[in-house]
């Protein structure tokens, strides 16, 4: 049985179990609505312009936070291996930040940056940056000494070594760090949007649906967030195969 058939069978199986739970009234229909009702809500959401405003707001915060995380995380990770002083200065703080649940930072971030998007972007950037810096650092540590020695011997400058050897060599690790950072960024983004003061965003619509007991809509949004996450991950994999073709070969 090929991979796609198996995946489709599992999806059908999950929907069948869901339908059975609803039909046999094993759980209150208020908590687990009919799959058809969820499909109807999903259909309605797809044809509502407001849906795209909510998705757009989340993707903007997610994208901006992730971009800032990469922008600061990549040079930080490189410097941690190249300059021991940088490593000693930041490793404790990276481990400290990673040990705190990201959501614990959100109330503090709202205090500092206000209820707008900036507070959410800050927390996403902080955590995705920490993940990205660490994976870049591991990547630089794992560089083949042979490749670096060849560069040294053939007169590469430090800058040329960074561009032609160190960055491409670390990409295997940074790409896996990017995938972790994407997952972390999406989780933080949706969680941060559940706090008061958010006008648009997927986190806000989840909370609103839950408060008003619109469970079919809640399920529809959850499925939609899952599909968005899946889409981002698949796109990352396609880009990885296209531009980082040497990884794992």
């Amino acid at each position: 049985m090929n991979k796609w058939r198996l995946e489709m069978l599992i999806v059908i199986g999950v929907f069948l179990v869901w339908w059975l739970v609803f039909t046999l009234k094993l759980v209150s229909p208020l908590l687990v609505p009919h799959p058809g009702l969820v499909a109807k809500s999903m259909f309605a959401l797809l044809f509502s312009a407001k849906t795209y405003l909510e998705i757009g707001a989340t993707l903007y915060r997610f994208g901006a936070g992730l971009f800032l995380g990469i922008f600061f995380g990549l040079p930080l990770g490189l410097s941690m291996e190249l300059f021991s002083l940088v490593y000693r200065a930041v490793i404790f703080w990276i481990d400290f930040v990673r040990s705190i649940p990201a959501t614990a930072f959100i109330p503090w971030s709202i205090l500092i940056f206000g209820v707008g998007s900036n507070s959410k972007i800050f927390v996403i950037a902080l955590f995705s940056g920490a993940y990205f810096a660490l994976s870049t650092w591991y990547g630089v540590k794992a560089i083949s000494p042979g490749r670096l020695q060849v560069a040294t011997l053939h007169g590469f400058s430090l800058w040329q070594k960074i561009i032609h050897v160190i960055i491409p060599e670390t990409i295997a690790h940074t790409v896996s760090g990017l995938r972790s950072a994407i997952t972390v960024a999406l989780v933080i983004c949706v969680a941060a949007e559940m706090f008061v003061g958010t006008k648009y965003g997927l986190g806000k619509v989840l909370i609103n649906s839950q408060i008003t007991y619109e469970t079919a809509t809640l399920y529809a949004w959850i499925i939609m967030i899952g599909l968005i996450g899946l889409g981002i991950n698949k796109a990352t994999l396609i880009l990885e195969r296209r531009y980082v073709h040497w990884v794992g070969k």
């Binding site: 083949s144 042979g146 490749r147 020695q149 011997l153 590469f156 032609h164 491409p168």
Partner: peptide
């Protein structure tokens, strides 16, 4: 000018560059 070829070429070549590009790059840097 010193040039060195290491024992295991797969560990010293740059897999992110095509053959032509890496030979050209070494010529340029030298």
């Amino acid at each position: 000018k010193i040039g060195m070829v290491f024992q295991n070429a797969s560990q010293s070549l740059y897999p992110w560059y095509s053959i032509k590009k890496q030979i050209c790059m070494f010529a340029k840097i030298s």
